[in-house]
Amino acid sequence: MADDFRSMINVDRIIHEPARLIIVAILYAVESADFLYLLRETGLTKGNLSSHLARLEDASYVDIEKTFQGKVPRTICRLTEDGRMAFDDYRERLQRAIDTMPEEVGT
């Protein structure tokens, strides 16, 4: 039981940050999503979202591609295979820790 809790200490800190966790969870569910969609779904400011995406790109968890839809620029983000594996691992650790928690704490 203690090992399952301890595994949370080694959790991926890049994904563990709440804003980045939402971004990764959204991208996990799709092939790709653009900056506008992520902006609307996360409720972050443009600057904040850019900085979190840059952090995820540095960790090779997210691919960012700048394209055009007609004359309108579109920034497409997609989770890499590494990002997908890291998110799977994060969810697994979280699930293990939740499963070992007592039903009612403090009773």
């Binding site: 569910a29 799709v30 092939e31 790709s32 999503a33 653009d34 900056f35 506008l36 969609y37 992520l38 902006l39 609307r40 779904e41 839809q69 309108v72 579109r74 497409i76």
Partner: peptide
Amino acid sequence: YPRTGYVSYR
């Protein structure tokens, strides 16, 4: 997509 963003599904 111009209003609420583009998403491509797996």
